[in-house]
Design a protein around this nucleic acid. Structure first.
Lengths: 239, 239
DNA sequence: CATAATTTTTCGTCCGGGCTAAAAGTCGGC
DNA sequence: GCCGACTTTTAGCCCGGACGAAAAATTATG
């Protein structure tokens, strides 16, 4: 029951499924090169693997026109994402991992942890719905409620927002954002957008900061009522 | 720091090192077939791997005459065993795993858990010296104190013993022993040895049981003072 | 000792999953 | 509608680690 058996997706397969799902959120048939870049593999290797995924029914693949997850593939991807996020939450909550260092550990454990282990972790955590980065944790049955908060970079100047989610990206970025105090729950005031894709000036924790475009894009926020300008309702502005 | 890097032993290498060390305790140059049996691989595969281990300096290998761990191999093996045992202890203590089910999970996690994770687990457990089966946990530096308790099967009739260690073997045996209440700390009275390698009759928890040879061999015990027959000192009978 | 039985190694293969170089397909620009 | 640029796939290769069959070494036996 707990043991990996032969039909189980390999480590590599799991990585590909996760990556495909990730890229699909941006644009749907996922290109070979995009995958190759994300996974740090040669395009040729990616083509190979895609063919094999297609044979296993995990993706729908049209040569030269990209790939997308099948039903089965989507489900499998969600199981992996659940594992990843529960593990992250657990490591931070129970083992004192820092926000920025947890990703790498989870990235490895997600491939060997059994469902039993993950469910036990979820249990002692009280079945959390969000992971430490603010991303929703799929249920054991594979249901997710996608959040789709606007990125900080999309918020117009003058608004106050609360950070909801910070994409679970590379360690460096996360560490930097943590230093700034930019993690879920933090209140941020957007002061000004510099022109031509320039940085965005924000006030966070009483200090003014300047965030590059790349950073501002991975920080997802929710608009708040304006402090002085008695404005919109809690959930009104979703752009 | 936490990430597996290229020089790291592969999953397969780790399994071989553990197995070699395990078999070495019985008889020192370990034979190809013994390894093949334990790991459920063909002898040919084992020879292959051994050659590769020898090239990496992890074992000393003399063709046709068996293999033994080198200094480096021993150290590596101990690191893996530490990982395994700390993880087992953690899973039981903190995640409610049962004594008999924990092995398989640890068997997989030990290959992907980072040293950081293991040290954090050890920390929250208060740096235990024994795992749940009573086996000593090597230190992070690779020191172990081998216990070498006599097996229950070696104890002469009439003695009272306390279970110290139960080899972390297959699930079935462990579950059965757990049902009987035979785990570290349990008091057992050895009543009689049936002749010709027969079973051994014991009293445990007020009930009489008959244990087959195979089972009695994996239960390691320490002799107690005789209850009625004011007998041997604590450590006297090492048979 | 010589020969039979057993163990171990060698040899040739296979599979998963990488890679590079070369070929083929797609697409934007004229 | 063709041409060049870019993307993708194919072809051939490698490596780790498994396999079975056959050969070689060791050990046991008469």
């Amino acid at each position: 029951m707990a043991t990996r058996q032969s039909g189980d997706p390999s480590h590599a397969v799991e990585d590909y499924l996760k990556a495909i799902r990730h890229l699909q959120r941006e644009s749907s048939p996922v290109s070979t090169t995009a995958l190759a870049q994300l996974l740090d593999r040669s395009p040729a290797s990616v083509t190979n693997m895609i063919k094999s995924l297609a044979e296993r029914g995990l993706v729908d693949y049209e040569p030269y026109h990209g790939v997308r997850l099948s039903e089965a593939g989507e489900l499998e991807a969600l199981r992996i994402i659940r594992r990843h996020r529960v593990i992250e939450a657990y490591l931070i909550e129970k083992l004192g991992y820092s926000w920025d260092r947890v990703h790498a550990e989870a990235e490895r454990l997600e491939h060997s942890a059994s469902d039993e282990l993950v469910e036990r972790m979820a249990e002692v955590l009280g079945h959390p719905e969000l992971d430490p980065h603010g991303s929703p944790i799929p249920t054991a049955k594979g249901e997710v409620t996608e959040l789709r908060h606007p990125a900080l970079s999309e918020v117009s100047a003058g608004a106050s927002v609360i950070v909801q989610e910070v994409s679970d990206a590379d360690e460096g970025r996360l560490r930097y954002l943590a230093e700034l105090g930019l993690y879920p729950g933090t209140l941020v005031e957007v002061m000004e957008h510099e022109p031509f894709e320039g940085p965005i000036r924000v006030r966070v924790g009483g200090r003014e900061r300047s965030l590059g475009r790349g950073l501002a894009e991975i920080v997802r926020v929710e608009l708040q009522d304006e402090a002085n300008d008695g404005g919109a309702s809690d959930d009104a502005a979703n752009n």
